[in-house]
């Protein structure tokens, strides 16, 4: 049988994705980041799993080297790749927010925003008709306001612990975020029956 290749995001989302497979009774054991392996093949299911950085999942799927992928909506919004969004898996749920220092007085306009998501931030502030300068950082964006680089950050928030520890508060909510099942446009047609079968199994449990 030809392999169905699925690209999975490393990190928090991976554990939840593997739980999902368990729930639909696919026993894809030993898939973890610790093993350092990047490709896992399961002959019984005719499936191949790839572990990649979350940002790369839509790239692999767009080019068709992976048929399907599990990617956060944050990544899909930021990268806007040519992929089909099949299903909201309701995994790794969090929110995309604007956060500012706790002691910031309300009503002062935001001039500078630090974020890993420049496109999302830019379109959000454009819609609010606020001209802002976006500074792209690659991680630990909370440092922006702490060091005085920016007035605010745009980032994903799950529990809010990180914000609290860095004395930031949520000022605005941009959108809810969750993991999506995405498909390559050609695979979606050429491997349609296998993808539809997987889809209906997942739909039955979420």
């Amino acid at each position: 049988m030809e392999f169905l290749t699925i690209a999975l995001s490393k990190g928090r989302i991976l554990g939840e994705t593997m739980e999902l497979f368990k729930k639909i009774e696919m026993h894809l054991d030993n898939v973890s980041e610790e093993s350092r392996k990047l490709i896992f093949e399961f002959e019984d299911y005719g499936m191949r799993l790839i572990l990649s950085k979350p940002l790369d999942v839509p790239i692999f799927v767009e080019h068709g080297v992976a048929d399907l992928g599990v990617a956060g909506k944050d990544v899909l919004l930021e990268e806007s790749k040519d992929v089909f969004e099949l299903l909201d898996l309701n995994l790794a749920r969090c929110r995309m927010v604007v956060a500012v220092p706790e002691d910031r007085a309300p009503g002062i306009p935001i001039y500078r925003v630090a974020t890993k998501y420049p496109r999302i931030a830019e379109s959000f502030f454009l819609k609010k008709a606020q001209p802002v300068e976006i500074i792209k950082l690659n991680g630990s964006v909370e440092l922006g306001p702490l060091l005085g680089l920016s007035d605010a950050i745009v980032d994903i928030v799950a529990t809010g612990h990180t914000l609290k520890e860095n004395r930031l508060k949520i000022e605005d909510e941009i959108c809810p975020i969750s993991a999506r099942l995405i498909a390559n446009q050609v695979s979606f047609r050429l491997k349609s029956s296998r993808i539809q079968e997987l889809l209906s199994r997942i739909r039955a449990i979420i």
Partner: peptide, 9 residues
């Protein structure tokens, strides 16, 4: 038109 050899139409 799709073909397995290409990820794009």
């Amino acid at each position: 038109i799709y073909s397995p050899g290409s990820g794009f139409p």
